[in-house]
């Protein structure tokens, strides 16, 4: 859990902070007009962070970081005969190595989604307090406008599915590596590409199912 989840907190906070700030600035400067209510920027920032960014886009980013980590770790274990060593000891290497990764990531990802949303909102407030692009009052009224709690749970549920995809697909590619270091690199790339594609497709279905 530490390797897959805790070590990703930094990058999640950093990316979410800047994306939250940028969304707020873009909406305020390019979309908000005199015809629109003053709370639009805050409202749109909150909805984007909750519905898509913190769950789906963050998981796409994590599929690159965590997915390649899992695939290359298992691939290296395969090529250096560490997996064979486990088998010889009478240990079911697949369940011993893969199951904790799937469970660990599925446990950690809801927390990363919460951190991401919080960091995005802090980023949006930074544009108000530091950049003075929007007033904190307008932002707050947008953030609080017609808040639907289900949107938060929707993000969490989607992210748990995506965590399963990232950990299982990457583990599959890493565990089944044959050959040497070149194939470990290929497995790592394939793991990221495949899990990203699966996340995108499943996002489509999950969004429709959960909305």
């Amino acid at each position: 859990m530490a390797q897959l989840g805790v070590n990703s907190i930094g990058i999640v906070l950093l990316i979410s902070f800047f994306i939250g700030a940028v969304i707020c600035i873009q909406i305020k400067l390019n979309i908000q007009s005199a015809w629109m209510p003053h709370w639009v920027s805050g409202y749109v920032t909150r909805e984007i962070m909750l519905l898509e960014f913190s769950s789906s886009i963050m998981c796409l980013i994590l599929s690159g970081k965590v997915g390649s980590n899992i695939a290359s770790e298992l691939g290296t274990m395969r090529t250096t005969q560490q997996i064979d060593a486990l088998e010889i000891m009478g240990i079911n290497s697949a369940s011993f190595l893969i199951l904790p990764k799937i469970l660990g990531l599925m446990t950690m990802i809801p927390f990363l989604v919460i951190f991401s949303t919080a960091s995005g909102i802090i980023g949006a407030y930074a544009t108000a307090y530091i950049g003075h692009i929007i007033t904190a009052t307008d932002l707050t009224s947008g953030m609080l406008y017609e808040f639907n709690q289900w949107f938060f749970w929707m993000g969490v549920i989607k992210s748990i599915f995506f965590a399963f995809i990232i950990a299982s697909v990457s583990s599959y590619y890493g565990y089944t590596v044959e050959g040497g270091s070149i194939n470990v690199g290929k497995a790592s790339t394939n793991a990221v590409v495949s899990s990203s594609m699966l996340i995108l497709f499943s996002d489509l279905f999950l969004t429709q199912m959960l909305s």
Binding site: T80, Q82, D84, A85, E87, I88, M89, G90, N92
Partner: peptide, 19 residues
């Protein structure tokens, strides 16, 4: 097979120690 493997020890060409 799993039970019998507990009676085996193996030294691999690459040592195969857990990093």
């Amino acid at each position: 097979k799993t039970m019998l493997r507990r009676e085996m020890g193996m030294i691999f060409q690459s040592a195969a120690l857990f990093d």
